[in-house]
């Protein structure tokens, strides 16, 4: 058993975990934060996406012990215009992938602001627009089997448009 401390959604949590407990299971089963979802438990769907020190990660492939001292944000700790935009643009159906989509989108917008390129970004280091194809590529780590991709895209473009482009 290892004791770890994490700042989760603004409150410091201290918990004892075996080293083989994933961050996802620690959040869901130990801290009762079931917003991050388990869809595949192998980094293939993105439903478990949370923000760790501001970066979006797959909590299912993260061992909790590796995140000792980290700041973790799950959907329960999110208050962001994207949430309302997802409702307005119907960016979900069943809602299971939604917390991951939202956390991923928040991380994605921050990455874009910080200058992170994507596979569809033109070569070179110049500025570029956060186009629809950029958003699609950057959000491709979050599967939605209901197929709400159009609504998710609309919600993100809506909010990104308000926040301005790089």
């Amino acid at each position: 058993m290892t004791q770890i401390r994490m700042n989760v959604n603004g409150s410091v949590e201290s918990l004892d975990v075996e080293p083989w407990v994933s961050l996802l299971d620690a959040l869901r089963e130990r801290l009762g934060l079931t917003g991050p979802k388990k869809g595949c438990d192998q980094g293939a769907c993105g439903a478990c996406t949370v923000l760790a020190d501001g970066l979006r990660i797959n909590a299912c492939l993260a061992l909790a012990v590796q995140y000792d001292g980290s700041e973790i944000t799950t959907i329960e700790g999110v208050a962001h215009p994207l949430q309302e935009a997802f409702v307005r643009h119907d960016g979900f159906q069943c809602g299971y992938c939604t917390p991951g989509q939202l956390c991923s989108a928040i991380g994605m917008l921050a990455e874009y602001e910080a200058g992170m390129p994507s596979a569809v970004t033109p070569p070179g280091a110049g500025a570029y627009e956060l186009s629809e194809s950029e958003v699609r590529e950057r959000m491709s780590g979050n599967l939605c089997r209901c197929g709400a991709y159009n609504g998710i895209l609309d919600a993100i473009m809506d909010v990104a448009g308000e926040e301005g482009t790089r």
């Binding site: 869901r28 079931t34 979802k37 388990k38 309302e84 997802f86 409702v87 307005r88 809602g95 939604t98």
Partner: peptide, 21 residues
Amino acid sequence: VDRVDGPAKTTGEARFAAEYP
């Protein structure tokens, strides 16, 4: 019309079958 369960699904409040302690 907006979905009636929209807020629950976008805040993590919606609990699924494996999420009842």
